[in-house]
């Protein structure tokens, strides 16, 4: 379970996350949707302990991330927005490094790396320097790295970016298995149909606060729209802006 209460993050004078209240149940995939700069990544970085909140609390699997960061970090698997990896290591080195730091027994580590490498067709890159991998393959290293310790909380910031359709499909299946096993997954994306397909509940975030929350159906009913894209535009009050831009474009033609 992930619970945040009044989570707030200031960057100087800018309030990136503003009194954010979230609750992701066990066995739930929660989609965090919102325009660029709305605070999705910042929220996730607070949950993972990269950033400290200015105020408010964040609890993952009954552990307060600020009060007991190490305990919390053991429970979390995190896929950042863009892969942060050691470029001069190979994926093999990287996985062993994680195995050591996360205290994963050798047998389990081997089984899991093999399982995911197989699923993501990753074997050919096992001994290539990460710096020379393509973006998609770096993303795979990042995803495998997040899953190796079998976390009870998964935080994925646009994790589907750069993956080809087949791999994206496989990742979706893996996420479903995590969910069935009672884990909490929080997931941000700009691909709305994907969110519709994957997420049990969706939270729309704008200017650092949740402006609407619910299942896709609930959200659609709320604004009386049938298409998820229209729901998104309506809830983030982007409708008029899109219309204005379209008008302007027409006039310049």
């Amino acid at each position: 379970m992930i619970v945040t209460k009044g989570l707030t993050k200031w960057f100087g004078g800018l309030c990136a996350v503003n009194d954010l209240n979230l609750r992701v149940q066990d066995g739930e995939i929660y989609g965090l949707l919102g325009p660029n700069g709305s605070g999705k990544s910042t929220t996730m970085k607070i949950l993972t302990g990269i950033l400290k909140p200015s105020s408010g609390t964040a609890i993952v699997d009954k552990v307060d991330v600020v009060a007991s960061p190490i305990k919390a970090k053991k429970k979390i698997g995190y896929v950042p927005e863009s892969p942060i990896l050691y470029e001069s290591l190979t994926p093999n080195d990287m996985f062993n490094f994680l195995g050591g730091l996360r205290n994963i027994p050798s047998e389990k580590l081997k089984r899991r790396v093999n399982y995911y490498s197989n699923a993501f067709e990753f074997y050919p890159y096992m001994h290539q320097y990460i710096g020379s991998l393509s973006f998609g393959n770096k993303q795979k290293v990042s995803i495998i790295s997040a899953l190796l310790h079998d976390p009870s909380i998964l935080i994925m910031d646009e994790a589907m970016n750069g993956l080809d359709p087949k791999i994206a499909r496989i990742l979706r299946e893996i996420l479903f298995r995590f969910k069935v096993n009672g884990k909490s997954i929080i997931f941000s994306t700009h691909v709305l149909p994907l969110a519709e397909m994957v997420c049990d509940r969706i939270g729309i975030i704008d200017n650092g606060t949740i402006v609407a929350e619910g299942t896709v159906e609930e959200l659609k009913d709320k604004v009386h729209e049938a298409d998820i894209e229209d729901v998104f535009l309506e809830l983030t009050k982007s409708r008029d802006r899109v219309a204005n831009v379209l008008d302007a474009l027409k006039q310049t033609e």
């Binding site: 996985f95 062993n96 490094f97 195995g99 050591g100 730091l101 205290n103 050798s106 074997y123 096992m126």
Partner: peptide, 16 residues
């Protein structure tokens, strides 16, 4: 071409 994964686990400190 080596497509195999070779696990080796160490303590936190020696991994670092």
């Amino acid at each position: 071409i080596q497509n195999e994964y070779f696990p080796s686990t160490r303590s936190k400190m020696s991994s670092l």
